[in-house]
Write a protein that binds this DNA or RNA. Structure first.
Lengths: 333, 333
DNA sequence: AAAATTTGTGCGAACGTTTGCGCAAAACCG
DNA sequence: CGGTTTTGCGCAAACGTTCGCACAAATTTT
């Protein structure tokens, strides 16, 4: 290891020590088969001995690939995005890709920030925020940066991986219907989010097929607090089942319903969508449709890598199945 | 804007169009006072017109400053770190710094990953994970990368900003004592986390001054589930007040206590530390000692920038006050 | 044994900036 | 009006890699 304060050890340093040219060192370190095995080995040894650390910035300049992926993360109050972050970071690391965070939180990504970050010659972008304006994608497209959206419908010039929101919601509705529920309430998020819309439509569609319309339809943003407020408005409505388009909303609804004196699930079944970690807590035991988050992240990175390898690969959108997980918050068929 | 597919517009492009040298363009864009105002303005206009985007990678190579900060984030199940992330991203953006995520989640940062990321010539690192081994800091130190820890005690060659954990915990104890509580339980995290340790010590210390020792002392990792398990063990102990060293634990404790038939706060007061967003939910209304997270992030970045500007600035640790916020989960003096 | 191919390595030019230094012209001084 | 300072800009060398091309030596082919 280099504990000294000498000049940084670079490829040139190594090349001199090894008596070969810098290009040979470069190729040897990258495992280029054109370099003989013996030279490759001795250079690897030398690099380790000297504590050589490749300069990713220089590499980026020379190769045109930075190894950097821009990341736009949704509202951090929603644990969903946090889980996504963790999964994505792990998965990306194994592929030698790193995340440069462009945005974390509510609202759209700041134009200037996004622009500045594109200056890092991003190899691609991962956009997870549901209610993100399309501006970010547009900026990326203008700079020819591949984009993949996760848990969100594709926009112009972008790939996407989502789960089958509609089918998941439909299944939830079916299960609820089978169990005999008739007075349905749904808590939706308006037009802010494409998955939210799909989930609401799927649910209502299935209800309609059974000849039913909901007794209440509350709008909320995707947060606990908004869910709580919606839940309060539902207390007097006395639905026998409520479907919230996201878990974080469902948790708020549930707490409000309970605060209003209703028992869950005896008086009212409550269900959500996402299967965030909080949903599994004993105090909630929320029945919900699970997004296969881990698989989604994997596929998203696959898509990104494919586009990096071949910039002319067509946009693609992958839909993975959602699976309802039964817990205590609802009586199901 | 450059919607065409022509070659990228670089400083050289601009310099030709403007009839000046590349160095003049560079200086003009950076606002160098040595360039006349008129030239500066015309170049700025030209840059905007051509949709010029500075290449941050090239700049990094030439200047030795990448504008990149490595970020190590604690367990994402703990909303604390998520809030931290959001605040840090915002605050950093205004300073022209970007985060490269080194780690997110439990456990120590992976050696190889950290090393690889240092190859991006980070200007500094922000380390927030409480239970991180000191390895990350060590690696940074070896590569002469300034480190600042937040919500965590300093290590070798690192600055830090924390809140006064001990004082916060002491105040909580005082308030609880004043309200007449005598049967105390504390849920701690063992030696895994320095803030956790300080909080526990502060609390116990104040208790000792009142001639008391806790009736129970449960160990947990910093998670809801571990808190829940600890809470279950406490049901039969029937403490009249419990102090958990972090909110996420306190929430688990509270749910378990309630599941065990105890009323909060009538039968038992429960308190925590951090003031995460969940603590304010009506279902919890957790009384807790708040970390001034926003201020901490600001100071952390100040520290980092100071070290970037002057690599020989000494390490420094800043301690901000903690403030107990009273909510419904505890009867307080 | 000469010719053709393969194998292994070096040369040098990028990549897009920044920055120390040099040098002219313009502004000031007495 | 000659001499000194200031102002404004250009030259060219970095920064640490990658990669196309050339080229010698070793190997195979005819």
């Amino acid at each position: 290891m280099d504990d000294s304060n000498g000049p940084r050890v670079t490829i040139v340093t190594l090349s001199r020590r090894a008596g070969v040219s810098p290009s040979t060192v470069s190729r040897a370190l990258r495992g280029d088969p054109r370099i003989s095995k013996s030279v490759r080995r001795s250079i690897a040894a030398l690099a380790a001995e000297e504590g050589y650390l490749p300069n990713a910035v220089a590499r980026g300049l020379a190769s045109g690939r930075s190894g950097l992926i821009g990341l736009a993360l949704g509202p951090t109050e929603n644990p969903l995005y946090t889980q996504l972050l963790q999964l994505a970071v792990q998965e990306a690391a194994t592929r030698g890709l790193r995340f440069l965070v462009m945005h974390a939180g509510e609202g759209a990504v700041d134009e200037d920030t996004a622009g500045a970050i594109l200056g890092y010659q991003l190899d691609g972008c991962l956009i997870t925020s549901a209610d993100l304006s399309s501006r970010a994608a547009e900026i990326c497209a203008r700079h020819r940066v591949p984009v993949v959206m996760v848990s969100r419908v594709a926009r112009l010039h972008a790939s996407a991986v989502t789960c089958d929101n509609r089918a998941g919601a439909r299944e939830m509705a079916s299960l609820l219907l089978e169990a005999g529920h008739r007075r349905f309430a749904v808590v939706h998020v308006g037009g802010r989010s494409s998955p939210g819309l799909e989930r609401e439509h799927g649910f209502l569609e299935r209800l309609a097929e059974a000849g039913l319309t909901p007794v209440a339809r509350e709008e909320a943003v995707s947060s606990y607090e908004a869910g709580y407020a919606a839940g309060q408005r539902l207390v007097d409505v006395r639905p026998d089942a409520v479907f919230a388009v996201s878990d974080i909303i469902a948790l708020g609804v549930m707490d409000a319903l309970r605060a209003g004196g209703l028992r869950v699930p005896e008086d009212v079944s409550v269900t959500g969508f996402d299967d965030i970690a909080e949903a599994a807590r004993p105090a909630y035991a929320l029945t919900t449709a699970a997004q296969p988050l881990s698989a989604m992240v994997t596929r998203a990175l696959d898509l990104l890598e494919a586009r990096i390898a071949n910039p002319f690969a067509p946009d693609e959108t992958i839909t993975l199945g959602a699976r309802v997980v039964r817990r205590g918050s609802a009586r199901l068929g």
